[in-house]
């Protein structure tokens, strides 16, 4: 097990390094510069700015400097918001996005599982159709449409919740709902499909024959196996939801880190592009590791260290 983790860790670092290198050179090969705006600054000032952010050095030197700083977890200054560092920005934005993402995941997971399980148990019944229509709606309505509808109905027409911003629990309700519908629908459909498959298996019949209660059959025998595909998607889903979503955060004016992903590219704010990419990749890689571990827990037949076992 230890050897397995060690191997995984090394692989993770290599992956991360490849992503960093790829992003770094790709981003510099895109035309445009952080100082190109409609309004022009004179050449002397532009040169000063470039020198300040070391953009006048050869690319390979910049790359080396970036890696050196990164080892010390220094992601550098933002070019557009010169009084802030990328560490500051992520340090402030991530907790907010994480909070929103965590609640969203909980809501999506619980409601998705319930919908999926119920639909599978009442296969081809009215409840199944109802649950699946909810799921189809959830998948096909983009979250920004959902967000706008929720705001218009539950904040403007019926003033139950505040329209936007992020300062109290009731401010969180609408963004969580808007953000959770998509993942909920995905989870519901996956759960239903794999539950249906599991429920037709022989060991379920055996369990029924043994006289186990339906609740026990569903939770102990069926759901556990049916969860595997859900866990698989959950890894990448969690990584993207926890690191913030540009559209929802923009609509609800949530101070998360979602906007940095998009704004940094539009502004050619190189350190921020790198910072967000590195951060997101690290979280994604970590989530995938968690998923692999979860497989082992859910299904003892899956061995994480197969090779060693042989």
């Amino acid at each position: 097990m230890k050897a397995y983790f060690f191997k995984r860790l090394i692989a993770m670092f290599i992956t991360l390094w490849l992503i960093i290198t790829g992003t770094f050179f790709l981003m510099h090969s895109v035309p445009g510069s952080p100082f190109n705006e409609e309004r022009t600054t004179n050449e002397a000032i532009q040169k000063n700015l470039e020198a300040y952010y070391q953009l006048d050095k050869p690319l390979i030197v910049q790359y080396g400097n970036y890696l050196k700083a990164l080892v010390k977890f220094d992601l550098g200054p933002s070019i557009k918001k010169s009084s802030q560092t990328v560490n500051d920005m992520l340090g402030r934005g991530f907790p907010v996005s994480f909070e929103l993402g965590m609640y969203t995941l909980i809501v999506a997971l619980i409601s998705g599982l319930i919908l999926g399980v119920v639909a599978a148990l009442r296969h081809n019944g009215i409840i199944d159709y109802l649950a699946m229509s909810i799921a189809v709606l959830g998948i096909s309505i983009p979250n920004f449409v959902m967000a706008t509808v929720l705001i218009q109905q539950l904040a403007v027409n019926l003033p139950i919740f505040p329209v936007a911003t992020w300062s109290s629990p009731q401010h969180m309700v609408l963004p969580i709902l808007a953000l959770a519908t998509g993942p909920m629908a995905i989870i519901a459909r996956l759960t239903r499909t794999s539950m249906l498959e599991v429920l037709t298996q022989d060991y379920i019949k055996t369990a029924k024959a043994k006289g186990l209660s339906p609740v026990k059959i569903v939770f102990k025998h069926a759901l556990r196996n049916a969860l595997l595909p859900v866990v698989t998607v959950l890894g990448s889903l969690a990584a993207s939801i926890l690191t913030g979503t540009f559209v929802i955060e923009k609509i609800f004016a949530i101070p998360g880190m979602g906007k940095y992903f998009v704004d940094s590219i539009n502004n050619r704010d190189y350190p921020v592009i790198m910072g967000t990419t590195v951060f997101y990749s690290a979280i994604l890689i970590f989530m995938l590791l968690l998923v692999d571990i979860a497989y082992g827990v859910l299904d003892p037949r899956i061995k994480l260290h197969k090779k060693e076992a042989k």
């Binding site: 705001i151 505040p162 936007a164 911003t165 906007k259």
Partner: peptide, 18 residues
Amino acid sequence: WAMVDDPTTEYQMYTTGE
């Protein structure tokens, strides 16, 4: 000063008096 970047949200906040 809020920081609401979405013009529709801004307008909705204006209509609710926020």
